[in-house]
Write a protein that binds this DNA or RNA. Structure first.
Lengths: 160, 160
DNA sequence: GCATAATAGTTGTTATAACGACTATTGTCA
DNA sequence: TGACAATAGTCGTTATAACAACTATTATGC
């Protein structure tokens, strides 16, 4: 009986190794996300909002267009507009219409937003280490490799 | 530059290997979930609803109490009641108050629900293989091990 | 045996996600 | 150059997630 089977109290064996990997991945990702969520919530941020702020910090003072933010997000969000509405309302980002192409709106992180991120950097790093520090560096590198391989070119694998 | 950095167009290196694993895990899980979602949506189910139906099928005709369903879910859901409301409304599950302990409500999957799951079994298995069949069995087993290790006893790792 | 705590679910409310239709602006090419 | 397509973002709506307060039922301890 595998560890995951115990966790979800499943009596029957998994239909396939692939099914087990799938569930294991979702469950692990969910568990880690909950911990991040708990950490971020103390500062009133959701993981998605945090992700956007990080992206904007990375982009620097030039800022990014909404669509560019969407491209870079870890998990896809179909409604960047209102996500940014909330952040702007709290004074964490600023929006400005582009003069050259007036369809585009550039978004920049505000000093207030940068300050908030700075306060979160330490706690988040510690959370990462609490969650993952148990594994040796070599195993973490291996894990990154395996995950990369999964995300690579979907739908090319042979189906039995 | 790592594969993930290209995907999320990040210029700076990751703050730590742990941070990279975290993002990589979330992104991979999200990508696989989207594919499952697309498959399930053609039958009007969300991943969470599908998960509940699978749990109930596994439980057999005895059914499960709401709280037991919650325990077994892959991703935690704080509102089982309304999740079940929707499934019951569509005739996929049935609820019955327990006579011995009248606080408890037992939930069972209906024949209609079983039938729906049966139609999904093939497509979902093929989706798993499309997503993960690219990796050798040995690498999949390794991945399961690594993920198990992450979920094990949170908060015991040493923090630098 | 009765007050109190604990457990199992439900319900109200707010916020966010998902989907699709819509507006404004720019690019294309006949 | 003027119709039409493409692109960027917004808005309306519905459904679901999250949080907290609430009801009903059972267990506990004096």
């Amino acid at each position: 009986m595998t560890r995951l089977q115990k966790e979800i109290q499943q009596k029957k064996p998994f239909e396939s190794l692939e099914a087990e990997v799938f569930l294991s991945l979702e469950r692990t990702a969910d568990q880690l996300l909950r911990r991040a969520e708990a950490e971020l919530k103390t500062h009133g941020l959701s993981p998605t909002q945090y992700n956007v702020l990080r992206i904007l910090r990375g982009a620097g003072p030039a800022g990014l267009a909404c669509s560019q933010i969407a491209e870079r997000m870890v998990t896809r969000d179909p409604d960047i507009t209102r996500l940014l509405d909330r952040l702007e309302h709290r004074g964490l980002v600023r929006r400005a219409r582009e003069l050259k192409d007036r369809r585009v709106i550039m978004v920049r992180i505000s000093p207030h937003g940068l300050q908030l991120l700075k306060r979160l950097d330490g706690p988040i790093r510690r959370m990462h280490c609490r969650s993952l520090g148990r594994l040796q560096k070599s195993r973490l590198r291996l894990l990154v490799q395996l995950l990369d391989q999964i995300r690579e070119e979907p739908g090319n694998a042979t189906v039995p």
